[in-house]
């Protein structure tokens, strides 16, 4: 029964290699490592506009990721987006007056939530709400604004020049 043994060893190696490949894909290639620490607490923040923020986008303080966006829902009473964030449990000393803004990594990068700690003595409690928020900067709006200002400024100069 030598042959049977060879077959069994071969199949064992095959299955182990396949599972190892799956594990590698999960741990090394995908973002599973970021999920392993699912323990944490949730805080919510309301934004007028979230831009391109997605579920599982990063939540950072001072550029360090401390959590992820858990869910984004639209509140049709206030016409605002309610973003629920999951913050890792060891970062439980965020001041109650922390502010949140949606920023973009680089010019074309993905968007994330940046938290800016305030000076309050009390800390944000699990399930707490971040009051101070700044919406995403929409590039099209900025460009539109810029062009409008430029046009308005140019006209002003011409009028000034023509008056005397």
């Amino acid at each position: 029964m030598m042959q049977k043994r060879t077959i069994e060893i071969g199949v064992g190696v095959f299955v182990a290699a396949g599972i190892a490949a799956l594990v590698m894909l999960a741990m090394k290639v995908s973002n599973l490592a970021a999920f392993t620490n699912q323990q944490g607490y949730e805080v919510t923040a309301r934004f007028d506009n979230i831009g391109g923020l997605k579920e599982r986008s990063a939540v950072t303080v001072a550029g360090v990721r401390i959590g992820r966006v858990k869910s984004i829902v639209f509140d049709d009473k206030d016409y605002e987006a309610v973003v629920t964030m999951n913050i890792e449990s060891q970062h439980d000393r965020l001041p109650a007056d922390t502010s949140a803004s949606i920023l973009t990594a680089g010019l074309l990068g993905e968007q994330y939530v940046a938290l800016e700690p305030g000076g309050d003595e009390a800390f944000l409690k699990p399930g707490g709400d971040i009051k101070l928020t700044q919406s995403a900067i929409i590039l099209e709006k900025m460009v539109g604004q810029f062009l409008f200002d430029k046009a308005a400024g140019g006209d002003g100069k011409k009028e000034e020049g023509a008056a005397p």
Partner: peptide, 15 residues
């Protein structure tokens, strides 16, 4: 059983 294991190996080795 083999197919997903083989595909995972293909992807992992490809990466």
């Amino acid at each position: 059983i083999s197919m997903p294991l083989l595909a995972a190996m293909f992807s992992a080795v490809g990466v």
